[in-house]
Amino acid sequence: MIRGAVFVVTLAVLPLLGLPHWVLNMLVFVLMFAALASAWNLVGGLTGYPSLGHAAFFGIGAYAFALLLHRQTEITDGWQPFAWLPAIGVGTALIGVPIAAIAMRTRADVFAIVTITLLFVVQTLAFNLHGLTGGAQGLSFPVAPFPADTFERPFYYVLLGLLVLAMLLTFGTLRSKVGLALATVRGDEDKARGLGIPVGGAKVLAFAVSVGLTAMVGAVWAYYQVGIIYPQFAVDPLVTIAMVLMVFLGGRGTLWGPVLGAFVLETGQQYLAYELGASQFYLIAYAMIFLLIMLFLPRGVLPSLAGRLR
C-alpha cells in the first residue's frame, strides 16, 4: 500500500519539475504501456489465456474516440473529450464479452489464434471501410487546445489515472474470490470446473475488463496524436507484442511485473527507435530482445528474483 502511494505520488510530481518535452513525451508512452501491460496481465497473466488480439481493442477505442470528435470543427474545453472514456471502455468491454465467451470455450492456444485473427481482421477493416474510418488516409478530428508548454500534462495524468485503475483492479482481483477462481483456471481448469468453481464467468469477466481498459488507453493515445490517426498505427501488432513482452519480462500474474516491464522495455524501445530510426534494423533488434527474454527469462524478473531470495 505504502509502496503504491509513493509510486503514484512520485509519478504525479514528475511533470512539475520542468523536464524537457522529449522526456515528458517518453514518460507519456511509458505510462501508456504500463497501463496496457497491466490491463493485459488481467487476462494473460491471471488466467493464463494469452490474448494476442489486444491491439484490436486498442484500435477500436482509438477509432471510437476519433469518430466521436470527427464531426466537430474545434474543441473548446480540452478536458471535455476525456469524459467519453468510461463510455468507450464499457462499450468495448461489451464487445469483448461474446468474443471471450466463444474463444475461451477452447484451449489456450486456440484462444490465442482467435484473438490474433481478430487483430488482423480489425486492421483490415480499418483499412477497407473508407466510409467509416477514412481508410489509409486516416481519420481526422480537432486538435486538443492545450497550451504548447504543458501539452503533455493532461494526457500524462489521465494515463496515470488509467494505470492506477488497472493496478487497483489487479490488486483487488488478486485478493478476491474472482482472483482465486482465475488462479485455478491457470492451474488446472478442468479440475476447478469439476469442483464447482465458476471458471467460465470469471475468465470472461477478466477479458471484458481487460479489453475495456485497453480501449480507454487507445482513446487517450488517439487524442494525443494531434488530430489524425492511421490504421497501421491504431491497430498495430507491435502494440500487442509490447504488452505481452512487458508482462513476461516483469512477471506474469504479479501486480508490479507489468509496470516494471513497461518502464524497462518502453525506455529501451524509445532508445532503439532513436538510435536505429524506425528502420528494419529496429525490428530485428526488437525481435532479438523478444527471443532472448522468452528463452532466458520465461518466468519474468520479479518471480525469478523472488525464487532466488527464497
Binding site: 494476442l52 492456444d109 490465442a112 505481452v244 534494423f281 527471443l291 520465461p298
Partner: peptide, 20 residues
C-alpha cells in the same frame, strides 16, 4: 504457450531481415 510468442518473434525477425 511460449512457442506462440517465440514463433511470433521469429516472424518479426524474418520480416526485419527481408526488409534489410
Amino acid at each position: 504457450e511460449l512457442s506462440l510468442l517465440v514463433t511470433f518473434a521469429v516472424a518479426l525477425l524474418i520480416e526485419g531481415v527481408i526488409g534489410v
